[in-house]
Amino acid sequence: KKLSEKKNLTSKEIFDVIVNILNGNCSEIFISAFLISLLLKGENIDEITGTVEALQSHSIKISPSVNLPIIDNCGTGGDFLNTFNISTASALVASSCNGVVVAKHGNRSSSSLSGSADFFEFLGYDLNTESKLVIQSIETIGFGFIFAPKFHPGLKNVSKVRKELGLRTIFNRIGPLCNPCTNLYGQVIGVSDPILLNILPKVIPILGLKNALIIHSHDGMDELSTCSKNTIIKVSYQDEEYNFNKLILEPSELGMPKCSLNEISVKNKLQSIMETMRVIYGIKSSKSKENIVLLNSAALLLTGNVVNSFKEGIPVVKESLDGGAPQKKLRDFINKYGDISKLEDAEKLL
Rank of each mutant, 00 (worst) to 15 (best):
N198A: 14
P180I: 13
H216F: 00
I206C: 02
G208K: 14
I195D: 14
S217Q: 06
G190D: 06
H216S: 02
N183Q: 06
N179A: 05
G190T: 00
N183K: 06
G208H: 13
G190A: 12
S192E: 03
G186W: 00
L197G: 06
I195A: 14
L197Y: 01
L197V: 11
H218D: 07
L213K: 06
L213Q: 08
I214T: 12
N179R: 02
G208L: 09
G186T: 00
K202I: 03
Y185C: 07
H216D: 04
T182R: 10
G190H: 08
L209Q: 02
K210M: 01
P201V: 14
P180Y: 06
K210Y: 13
A212N: 01
K210F: 08
C181E: 07
G186C: 08
I215L: 10
L196P: 00
S217W: 04
K210E: 15
I199N: 00
I215P: 05
I189M: 03
A212G: 01
V188S: 01
P194Y: 15
I214D: 01
P180C: 10
D193N: 15
Q187Y: 01
L213R: 08
L184Q: 03
N211W: 01
I214K: 10
S192L: 09
I204W: 12
G208C: 10
D193K: 07
I189S: 04
C181Q: 07
L197K: 06
K202D: 14
S192H: 01
G186R: 04
V188Q: 01
L213F: 12
Y185D: 09
G190Q: 08
D193P: 08
L197T: 10
I204C: 10
S192M: 11
V191H: 08
N183H: 10
L200R: 06
A212Q: 01
N211L: 01
I214V: 14
G190R: 02
N179F: 07
L184C: 06
N183L: 08
Y185A: 04
K202H: 11
L200S: 05
I195S: 13
P205N: 13
P205W: 14
I204G: 07
H216P: 08
C181H: 07
L209V: 02
H218P: 00
I195M: 12
Q187K: 15
L200T: 03
Q187M: 12
S192G: 14
L184Y: 09
L197H: 11
D193I: 10
L197D: 12
V203L: 14
H218V: 07
Q187V: 01
I215F: 06
H218Q: 03
L197S: 14
V188M: 12
C181Y: 02
N211I: 03
Y185I: 04
L196C: 06
Q187R: 10
V203K: 09
L207Y: 11
V188L: 08
I199Y: 11
P201S: 09
